[in-house]
Design a binder for these strands. Sequence first.
DNA 1: ATGCTAACCTGCGCGC
DNA 2: TGCGCGCAGGTTAGCA
Length: 269
Amino acid sequence: MPELPEVETTLRGVAPYLVGRKIVEITVRDGRLRWPVPGAIHDLVGHKIESARRRGKYLLFKTSAGTLLLHLGMSGSLRIVDPDTEWRKHDHVAILLGSGKQLRMHDPRRFGCVLLVDEPEKHPLLAELGPEPLEEGFTAAHLFEQSRGKTCAVKTFIMDSKVVVGVGNIYACEALFIAGIRPAKAAGKVTRAEYEKLVEAIKQVLGASIEVGGTTLRDFLNEKGEPGYFAQSLRVYGREGEPCRRCQGTVKRIVLGQRSTYFCPKCQK
DNA sequence: ATGCTAACCTGCGCGC
DNA sequence: TGCGCGCAGGTTAGCA
């Protein structure tokens, strides 16, 4: 489900229900996520959520007793419900708030995680992360420097969270199409001028998707159960064999780094 | 250090 | 209708 726009949409949806509220009860129905949900998260009961923010695709809910670190993996989602709402299959963790509302984490594939951390910036999962793509630190110079000597595909390169966070499979394909760069081209051979275009394309495509609530492919819904509308704006992702929207060519699919990769051979060199 | 792969899971849509 | 197969928005661990 989630790339950066979907995580950001989720954050904006749930934050107003969380910040300033006390945690009344935490229910772990199935703690078998990517890593076991630590028993210590119950220490947060009685503490107030002071802030809710995002770092890459991680969500961080801060309390005076520690920070809840949450990742939605491939299929995770959050919902705000009334506590008497019927449990769905794969509703794994729930947090009851002082307001009487409940936050529920749903994740069929269980690639997501719910952890308790003390100093988020020092945590191994966050310490090595690259810049936020929508912030100042994400520049063509950064990509150019980081990529010199790299033989991996430029698409794989921009999906590496140590290089830049939040660019997943959909938006990597879309951004490379907008920038006119062939996804399989070695990252180290992409020119400075191409990285200029790519940085702009990434900012453009992520920003545009956030504006319409993210991409709903099969199951992404926001905290109110509404879909995102970016799917209808996709230029190449999932369009193998269909006509390119810019030229008369046909969208092709290849596999890079075990991931489906869509591009137009005529528009992307 | 770098780079590739296998692995973690469940569910869905497709062709037969 | 049912079954097997391939595929899915992410990321880490482990190996060469």
